[in-house]
């Protein structure tokens, strides 16, 4: 939710640099030390041990311990076994990101441009559901989408769904849940960048004979690109690693890579689980780098 940070940054101006004095550099390092050490010990070192674990001898077990055999083949064998859920995870994450953008953009636009004095309240309402545990909310989707729930009834009445059609335990259910869970991660950065846009630019677009649609396409959308990029990343990354929606709203046919990583770790198959985890991280890093480069936004960090 770095979006929250961006949110704060939206309405700020640059300040002149503070008074510089010698010895302040030392203070900076001291201030960074405790937190930096924590991140080093519990974020960087673990990533290294994860990488190490992915190269352990796959024949080891918790009881007998694992030995480091630089077993690079782990990656090959796990991908051979798990390419389906792996691909499915990326596909679901992509769908989720697309739906979040589709739903989130109008909402963010409405809050930033049309909400007037209700702006803060609407923004709060976007965040408020997140104070109810997301597991509980996902469970209630299970009820909403259940076979005798009103959503299925309504869709059947509208003939969108066949008389014996169902929603629960389908890809649609899993993507609905994912979209629901990560929507605010899309809305908040979108809002932050839409809010920064000078209204006069949009009026100027109208003044220069662009219709509302053309103005949106040529002025509003390009100016909100930083928000789109941040939002899509904040949605795609967690969605690709999620397994809760697949577990609660889907069947083994909708299994995502997170399900397998979790299951393998719980079963003590550390080398395989670690190899999958490393592959997921690597895939995400590569995709994000390509995406950020192509969208030309370097200001995310």
């Amino acid at each position: 939710m770095s979006a929250v940070g961006q949110l704060g940054a939206a309405s700020q101006s640059a300040a002149p640099p503070p008074v510089e004095r010698s010895g302040r550099r030392m203070t900076a390092y001291l201030l960074l030390l405790p937190g930096g050490l924590w991140l080093l010990l519990f974020f960087v070192v673990p990533l290294v041990s994860l990488l190490a674990a992915s190269l352990y001898d796959p024949n080891g077990s918790i009881e007998n311990g694992f030995s480091m055999t630089w077993h690079w083949q782990n990656f090959g064998t796990t991908m051979a076994d798990y390419w389906r859920p792996f691909g499915r995870s990326l596909w679901y994450a992509l769908l989720t990101t697309a739906f979040c953008l589709l739903l989130g953009y109008p909402l963010a636009y409405a809050i930033a441009m049309r909400a007037g004095r209700w702006k803060n309240l609407m923004l709060a309402l976007v965040i408020a559901p997140f104070f109810t545990s997301f597991l509980i909310r996902t469970l209630s989707w299970k009820m909403l989408l259940s076979d005798n729930g009103f959503v299925v009834d309504a869709l059947q009445w509208l003939r969108i769904l066949g008389p014996d059609g169902r929603l629960l335990a389908t890809t649609a259910a899993v993507v609905t849940g994912l979209t629901y869970n990560f929507l605010p991660f899309m809305v908040l950065p979108l809002y932050a960048s839409l809010e920064k846009i000078d209204r006069r630019l949009i009026e100027a677009g109208g003044d220069l004979f662009a219709g509302p649609v053309t103005t949106f396409r040529t002025v509003t959308l390009p100016l909100s690109m930083p928000g789109v990029v941040a939002g899509t990343l904040l949605t795609f990354i967690p969605a690709a690693g999620d397994y809760i929606n697949a577990q609660l709203l889907g069947t083994p046919k909708q299994r995502m890579i997170g399900n397998d990583i979790q299951r393998l770790f719980a079963a003590g198959a550390y080398p395989t689980a670690a190899a999958l985890s490393v592959t997921l991280m690597a895939a995400i890093v590569v995709l994000v780098l390509i995406y950020v480069r192509r969208s030309g936004t370097e200001e995310l960090v």
Partner: peptide
């Protein structure tokens, strides 16, 4: 700027990766 990136990275990592790498550390130590 390197520190900035370093702080940003945990937010950009999927939870399953963060969790499993911590587990790998705890187990190996």
């Amino acid at each position: 700027s390197a520190t900035n990136l370093f702080i940003f990275l945990p937010m950009a990592s999927p939870e399953i990766v963060l969790g499993s790498s911590l587990l790998a550390l705890f187990v190996s130590s």
